[in-house]
Amino acid sequence: MRAHLDQAYGTGRAPPTGLCLEIGPGDSLYTACSAHAAGFSGSILVDAGAWADRDLEGFRAAARVAGIAPDQIARWGSIDTALADLNSRYLTTGIDAMRSLADNSVDFIFSQAVLEHIRRHEYDAFIAETRRVLKPGGRSSHRVDLQDHLAHDLNNLRFGHKLWESDFFTSSGFYTNRLSYKDHVRAFEAAGYRINELNLDRFTKPTVRRAKLAREFRDRSDDELTVMAFDIVAEKPLG
């Protein structure tokens, strides 16, 4: 989380003091500890399923590393009491969880290699929900990995939408929405965000021959096909 705060606000600068929202905590609820230690009043952890490790001793160890007081840690009898004590909520219904949050209720949003896993048909609506819940002036920081999650290349672009978006592929564990970095930026801008920062990590040249790409992707520019990952910081304008 610290890297995202530095990216959004500048190294060493104090973050907001309200609510922090993490998209896709995966198997770890430790952001509840790091958000508390960073000065946030609470945190919301949103995922598409209940995949987090609920080991209390591991959570206590993370809390000690975050600098949370030993007497506070000692009163936690379960993960649920620990989360409540840190004013943290773990929500596991994806976009429906986002829709349950109040307008203008969150100060900072971040994710780490998660946005590429949101279903393609839900993506624009999901980004719009993040903007809705963010307070005016709030910032959203994300690391997005565009590579396939097997060979760390762009082999995912070899498959047509009909097959890739089928139930078999979307439940496979390696599904990505295959949006280009420009598609992601367009979604943020269409939702009403202002892009503050965009940093691209590139291959030196396209790694999959255009003729091997699915028909849907053959018109992508070399500019898009050489981006392997990127960092984006977006802000909800005031007013």
Rank of each mutant, 00 (worst) to 15 (best):
R2N: 12
D6H: 09
Y9V: 12
P15T: 08
P16L: 07
P25W: 03
L29A: 01
Y30S: 14
T31P: 02
C33N: 09
A35Q: 05
H36T: 11
S43K: 04
I44H: 05
V46K: 05
A48I: 15
A50W: 07
R54I: 10
D55M: 09
L56I: 14
R60M: 14
A62S: 13
R64V: 14
V65I: 12
A69P: 09
A74I: 01
R75W: 00
W76K: 01
W76H: 02
W76V: 05
G77S: 14
G77D: 12
I79S: 01
I79W: 02
D80H: 06
L83A: 02
T92P: 04
T92M: 06
T92R: 08
G94S: 09
G94C: 05
D96C: 02
D96W: 00
M98D: 05
S100C: 05
S100N: 01
S100H: 02
L101K: 06
D103F: 10
N104G: 09
S105M: 07
S111I: 06
A113E: 02
R120I: 08
H121W: 09
A125H: 11
A125I: 04
E129S: 10
E129D: 14
T130V: 03
L134G: 00
K135C: 08
P136A: 13
A151N: 15
A151K: 13
N156K: 01
R158V: 15
R158G: 02
G160K: 03
D167W: 06
F169M: 15
G173V: 06
L179R: 13
A187F: 09
G192K: 06
R194M: 05
I195S: 07
L198G: 03
N199M: 10
L200P: 04
F203P: 00
K205G: 02
T207D: 05
T207F: 05
V208D: 04
K212M: 09
L213T: 05
E216P: 03
F217R: 00
R220W: 15
R220D: 08
R220F: 15
D222C: 06
D222R: 00
T226E: 12
M228G: 15
M228A: 15
A229D: 08
D231P: 00
K236V: 15
K236P: 13
